[in-house]
Structures are given as C-alpha cells and as structure tokens.
Amino acid sequence: MVAVNPSSSDGGGSYFDLLGLPETFALDGAALEAAYLARSKDAHPDRFAQAPAAERVAALQRARTLNEAYKTLKKPVPRAEYLLARHGVTIGDHERLDDAAFLMEILELREELAAARVAGKLDDVGRLEAAMKQRHRGLVDQLAPAFAAAERGDAAALATIKRALIELRYVGRYLEECAASLDDADA
C-alpha cells in the first residue's frame, strides 16, 4: 500500500516542488524521468564520499526522498492518491464503504477466486484476473478527466476520484490474490 503522507520527508514541499514539476495529474512522464535523473545525480552519495558526515547524511536523505517522489508520481494510482491527499482527502483506516452491492460483488468474486485457487483451476484464475485487470484499466481511465475537473476547481470531482481510488484498492487487493494464486501453481 502506498503511504500517503505528502510532507513526510521533504520538509513541507511537495514531491512536485522537489522535482520542479507542475502539480498536476496530467504529468509528462518524460519530464518526470528527466527531472528525477538530473536531481538524483546531484544528490548521489558518491559525490559526497569526502564530505563531512552531516552533508553525507543530508545527501542520502535527499536521494531517498527523490526516489520516494519518483516512485509515487510515476504510476497513476499512487500519483492520484498523493494528489488527493494534497487536496486534504484521504482514505482512512476507519473509513467505511457504504455500498452493499459493490461489497457483495467483491465478496462473491473473492469466493470464486478462492474456490478456483483451492481446486487448482488456473484457467479460471486467469479469467478472473483478466476481467479484474480490465476493470482496473476502466477505473484508472476515470482519473484523468476527474483530476482535470478538480484542477479547474470542481470540488465534486474529488469525491469521484476518491470513489475510484477506493474501488482500485479492492481491485488491487484482488489482483494481488490472483498473482498469489498463480504463484502457488508455479511452486
């Protein structure tokens, strides 16, 4: 799970600030890559091998934060979670999803997967995984337009994003189970 804590280790500035990038979901992947590489080179521990201890530690911390920033912003789902948290919206431990139909569907799909796993029916696992991956793509596709709206000031779009991210957590957990089931079979 991605820890969403926007100001954990960068002294308050955002990951976007750190990388000198505009704070938007529609991030240019090549620009992210270039900014990360350039800054990582500056912060590389080898450059500080002869420096005083305090500077070495600081450089190491900077390198670590850069890695964290890159990892968070590179993929759409962690980027979306991070940006949503920057808008003050998080998915907390005590949050409840009040959607019986969705929960029932997930429960039944989990049961189906568990049965296929126990019976060693890899085709069934593969089929369930393929369907869930498609659902994953569909949810990820909702993020860009919703963020575009949110960034134009449409506060209601934040709820849409949150809902999609909640479903993505269930979908992500499901896909982990699929992968674990297929790993079983390899072992």
Binding site: E95, L97, R169
Partner: peptide, 13 residues
C-alpha cells in the same frame, strides 16, 4: 452485516 474497510480493501460479512 456486510461491511467494507476501503483503506485495506477488506470485506467482511
């Protein structure tokens, strides 16, 4: 009772 904890993607009946 059907409840879901979205933070972990858990579902409990």
């Amino acid at each position: 009772g059907l409840v879901g904890a979205p933070a972990c993607g858990d579902v409990m009946r």
